[in-house]
Design a protein around this nucleic acid. Structure first.
Lengths: 553, 553
DNA sequence: GCAGTTTTCACCTATGTGATAACG
DNA sequence: CACGTTATCACATAGGTGAAAACT
């Protein structure tokens, strides 16, 4: 297998972190966390040039057929909540996400609430767009949740990931989002571990938990652990609550996954809908470049490509601080309560399903099917007519909140027609055996349990990279994990800092270091470096490039 | 007279604004305003190289004796509210500033309230510091006021300026501010005109008016109209409410001036008290660089040079947005109500005093007494002992709010001993005939009426400058006016954009263009360019370098 | 090769930091 | 000459912009 890491040898471990793989086990990660805590600029965890371990046999990968987009969302929720256009919100106030049913799972009593939901709704009603850049961009609004029902004394790890909502590629045409074709292959989904992890239930419950540090990037070669997305594609952020003392003993089958429909968004490199731009400027304190009216009072009309109102007064906006405050404390009721697809799903916990055995994670998929044909785990796309579909067609001025549409008559996403196999979104996860079901055992006991490899660092897609060292000093902690039915078998570390403190010493750049992992089912405790030769290794990967404020318990 | 403007000839009017003085009158300023309204980057108003008009005779300047610091605060309030150390606040809730007494002045019914007063108090209790930089720095907290009692239909102009509070120079030693000597000569005070000016009373009253655009600089050669201050000196921001249809017909004798004790601050080039730094970071949305816990929840302990608490949790701060909101709507009562110097003054309106006649504004003061002896209009300094004085000696951790001290036992500023002549701060304005009383006719009818010249643009101190054109593209609108007993006679414009549209055409750089103004008593309607040969012309100067969102009425 | 769509990039705002440069 | 104080500067963060470059 070839090296998965593209960064130039030598520039990999600027801080002395080993750049060469081996079958190492986490060591001094705690110390590192502390250091990071104090540092202003988080350092990466990546240990660089790590090589594969258990993933020796490519065939173990469910994605065999889809080397390009083995990643994300296997789940069928893509079909359940694609009311993206924002014309209709979830009929029920699913602000409070609950497990689908009273399944006898350990955390069925967990209650998770999306904060600033009303703000999310505002964006959602217009068709949320999230900028993705080479260097990584934060999300706005910030994904922030309130937790309840956790065991105050137990330790939990909170993670987030973002999965494709459908298999379509979009374009913003004539003020609306329309499908332009099939989706591009997705990078393996990375997991962003909340920096406070692991922490007690009490800690997580004492106040809203923000995932503001999470960053999105369109750089497939990203070495900073940011979540890699494709521009012009629709995504669904998800939150996972896992009871575990540390990420290494975290059992993948104990994932409690939740999603919030209003957080769906389309990744873009540049804003398409200027109403979204304006909304961002209006609410994001950092988008000050245009807040002429300064902190709190701004004139929406200024700088608006097409002013909606007259320019007479600059005192029309409200204090964003106030709005923000309201947003955080108040929960605005949904206006339209179209009881369409009822419970638009929320909880998707990984059933106690079989952990797909100690499958070996393989990285040398070999298939460089860049643009080759891909599997159809995700609903296929079909460019719909311009009829009444399309996201945010409502260009109604200022507060134009689109009229509620039946849940069935979806917005943009409705244009995607799902293949028979994925027709039932709720079951898709379990029904598509070939892949992705890992994370979406929705009502089934299937699951995430079968994660196999953790690539701590390089996503394993950096093959022919030539990334400069500048890319190595980032910060967010993320796990790249392509929701497949593999089990956690190998841990791949890369980057500069070492979470696992594994790779240290060797500075060899692209050499492959396949190391057979110990195949700990359902546990991430064994981190093994791995490198694959294929540019887009389709398997679970964990990229833990950054800081963990709290030392591992 | 020599040129007051130092910027290289030619680079003065990048946008075609004349750089050569003449007796011009505002012309197309309105058009400019609109353009500015839409532009993201405000352009300056400065008309460059303008020359003096009425200020032909230097002797007319009250500052004759103090060529270096004719500027600011003539008022005696320096003595009234120097409880800077923050140990004691104004006894009465002077959040609502009212005219000193029911003087029969047109606007005696105006009520002005400082917004986010509690935030100001927090800073004040520690000893507020404001960063000043070459390029200009905004103030934080932002000076924001709520107005009441204005004639909804009349037009008003809101201005702000910042005057020296005493004649001392400070230094931060051993965690406290101590006087180190006499103050450096102050640049002529510039006036910052609120960009909405002029606007109806209704407009000003409909919501808090923020002066967030105002910037402070330590660059004496500033061409951007920013307010020039001296580092390590204490200042008092002031607000002026003037009923006028436009700045040119604005009558200087109709100024209604207000000050808020809690807004006193020491200008610094770098923060001295780290508690202040922390407070800034905690409350200023832009100071995000360190808000690890992101928008809303931050860990004060991170990055704190000397952490006050443990580092276990990052969830301790409150949402700044919330705080901000609260700050804006709620008015926190002062804890300590030491009824020391009772009404710590607030309203300082310019009585209907005689407008010092059509005194001619002279700019060629000639005196280059840079470090020469200066007049003593300001209270003289006397380095006090380290006893219990000194600003923010209270280094009590987190919420350490200093215990209230008698008003008499002032904080730092108390260390300054005032000369007999200025012993009575409230009367000083009127009592010091030589200068500065212009703005502080406190209880007297004296006054601001005697302003003579407006130097629209260069402060007149840019003499030997070599400022690049880069300095010319700024934005804030400011008037430089050294509160002396001169009357508004000449208007000096400089910079690139033209508010008065006066100077246009001539590009001669440093030539002097003394032009006899029409001597409009109390009115700024006649703008005359002027240039003085002395580096520090001590006279009223108006530097209106920038934008006025609203076209002049 | 033009045109339409996307992406990248240098720029600008605001603000604090640490290192370095002046100053006294 | 070195130290203590103050100032300046390049850097970093977050985020939008517009123009140019890159795709399709």
């Amino acid at each position: 297998m070839l090296s998965l890491f593209s960064h130039p040898s030598g520039s990999t471990a600027p801080h002395g972190y080993s750049s060469h793989g081996g079958t190492h086990v986490p060591q001094n990660s705690a110390a590192m966390f502390e250091e990071d805590l104090l540092g202003q600029r988080a350092r990466g965890f990546s240990l660089g040039h790590a090589a594969a371990g258990l993933m020796s046999t490519p065939q173990t990968f469910p994605f065999a057929g889809f080397p390009m987009h083995p990643a994300h969302d296997p789940m069928g929720f893509a079909g359940q909540n694609n009311q993206f256009g924002g014309f209709h919100m979830s009929p029920h106030d699913h602000k409070r996400m609950m497990p689908p049913s009273g399944r006898d799972q350990r955390d069925s009593k967990i209650k998770i609430t999306l904060e600033n939901r009303d703000l999310w709704q505002k964006f959602h009603s217009l068709g949320t767009e999230m900028i993705i850049t080479k260097t990584g961009r934060r999300m706005f609004p910030t994904f922030k949740v309130t937790l309840e029902g956790l065991d105050p004394h137990a330790k939990y790890i909170l993670l987030m990931d973002i999965v494709p909502l459908d298999d379509c590629r979009y374009k913003y045409h004539n003020s609306e989002w329309v499908v332009t074709g099939k989706a591009e292959p997705h990078m393996p989904g990375r997991l962003y571990i909340h920096p406070d992890s692991p922490a007690s239930g009490a800690h997580w419950m004492k106040q809203p938990v923000p995932f503001h540090k999470l960053k999105l990037t369109n750089n497939n070669l990203d070495q900073n652990g940011h979540i890699i997305l494709n521009s012009m594609h629709k995504y669904q952020p998800r939150i996972h609550v896992v009871q575990a003392n540390d990420i290494f003993t975290m059992r993948w089958n104990s994932f409690n996954t939740y999603i919030f429909d209003e957080t769906v968004f389309i990744a873009v490199t540049a804003y398409q809908n200027e109403q979204i731009t304006q909304l961002k400027i209006d609410h994001n304190p950092f988008a000050k470049g245009f807040r002429d009216n300064g902190m709190g009072r701004r004139d929406h009309r200024l700088h608006l490509k097409r002013p909606l109102i007259s320019l007479d007064s600059s005192h029309d906006g409200k204090d964003y601080e106030k709005e923000e405050a309201v947003r955080q404390s108040k929960i605005i009721k949904r206006e339209h309560d179209d009881s369409g697809l009822g419970h638009s799903m929320t909880k998707q916990h990984n059933g106690s399903q079989s952990e797909h055995a100690t499958s070996t994670t393989r990285d040398s998929d070999g298939e460089s099917k860049q643009a080759a044909s891909r599997g159809d785990e995700l609903p296929s796309c079909q460019v719909a007519g311009k009829s009444r579909s399309g996201i945010s067609p409502i260009m109604s001025g200022q507060k134009g909140r689109s009229p509620p549409l039946g849940r069935g008559s979806l917005g943009l996403s409705s244009q995607c027609q799902y293949l028979p196999q994925s027709a039932s979104p709720y079951l898709q996860g379990a029904s598509s055996p070939s892949c992705d079901q890992v994370y979406y055992p929705h009502h089934s006991a299937t699951t995430a349990g079968n994660m196999a490899a953790m690539q701590m660092a390089n996503t394993g897609l950096l093959q022919q990279t030539t990334v400069g060292s500048s890319l190595l000093n980032s910060a967010s902690s993320a796990l790249s994990l392509s929701h497949m039915g593999q089990q956690m078998g190998a841990c791949q570390l890369a980057g500069q800092n070492s979470a696992c403190a594994l790779a240290q010493g060797s500075t060899s750049g692209s050499g492959a270091y396949g190391l057979p992992g110990s195949g700990n089912q359902g546990s991430l405790s064994s981190c093994t470096y791995m490198q694959s030769s294929q540019p887009y290794p389709s398997h679970l990967s964990m990229n833990l490039t950054s800081h963990f404020p709290n030392p591992m318990a």
